[in-house]
Amino acid sequence: MEASITFKKVAKKFNGQAALADLSFGVERGTILVIVGENGAGKSTILRLLAGQMERDIGTVYIHGKDVSARGFETRSIAGFLPQESELDPDLTVLENLIIYGQLHHLSVKTARNHAYRWAVMLDFKDYLRDYPSVLSFGHTRRVCLARALVHDPEVVLLDEPTMGLDPAARISVWKTLDKFKGRKTILFATQNFFEAERYADRIAILHNGNIKLDGTLDRLMETTRGLTRFTIQFAEQPPRELLVELVGNPNIYRPNLQGRKLEFFARERHQLFAVIKQCLAFDPQTLDMSHTQLQDLFIGLTEGEL
C-alpha cells in the first residue's frame, strides 16, 4: 500500500532538549495510526510538524510524497489538524470561524458555508453557529475545532487528543464521525486513551522519549509480550510488605504491586504463578483473577523498561 505519511530520521529540539530523536515511521493511505505516549513524549510535536505549525531540525517529513517543508502549501491543503488546545478566533462567530478557515483553503464562501452546516449537524453544534466561541462549553469548542479541521475535506486528518475532556456522548459522536472516514482518509491521532487506541487503530505506535519503541497492529504488539498474563490475588487482610519485597526480587515476576488487600503482578509461566501462590498461602488469599495483558500494561512496561 502507498505511504500517506512518512517520517525519515526526524529530529526536533526545544531549548536544547530533544523532543524527537531520529524518528522514522510511515502511515499507509486510508489507515488509522494511533500514537500513544506519556506527556512530553513528542506526540504533539509529530502532529504539529505534519500540520505545518513548526519545522523539523533534521530529517524529512512527507505527506503523500511531498516534503512538508518544501511543499508546505500542498501538504497543508490536504491535511486537517485538530490541535490539543482548542484554538478558535474569538472575534468571529462559530460559523465565521469555519467559513474563513474554509476560504483560506481556497473554498468559495458558499461551499465553506455548506460544509460548515454539514459538520455542525454531524457534530451536533448547529444551534451555536451564530454564537461567539466565548459562550461555548469545552465540549462544543472541541467539536467546532474538529469541524474546522475537516471543513476543507482533507485527505489526511491529524488529531491531537481528539476526545480529551469530552463527555461520553460527545466522544461517541466524534468517533462515529471518524468511523465514516475509515478506509478513505489517513488518520493519525495521538491519545492517552488506550481503550480508544485499541478500539479504532489499524496500527499503534508507542512513543517514548521522542522515538517509537514499538509499532504495529494491536495483535502484533500483544505478541511481543510473549504470553505475559496479569494476575490479581485478593487477600482477606492486607499482607505484609515483605511479600512484595520477595516478589520484587523474583526475576520472573513483572511489576508486582500491592495495594491494600490486592496484589497484582505479571508472569509468563504457570509454575511461576504457583510459586507465588505458595508464598501467599500464609496470608489467606481469597480470590485469584487472570487476564490478558492490555495495551496499557504493555505501554507502562515498555516505557518503564520493565518488560
Binding site: G52, Q53, G72, E74, R76, P90, Y101
Partner: peptide, 14 residues
C-alpha cells in the same frame, strides 16, 4: 492573544 497565528500556520497561506 488569539492563537490566530497557530490557526493560520496550518492553512495553505504564506
Amino acid at each position: 492573544e488569539n492563537r490566530l497565528l497557530k490557526i493560520y500556520l496550518t492553512a495553505p497561506i504564506s
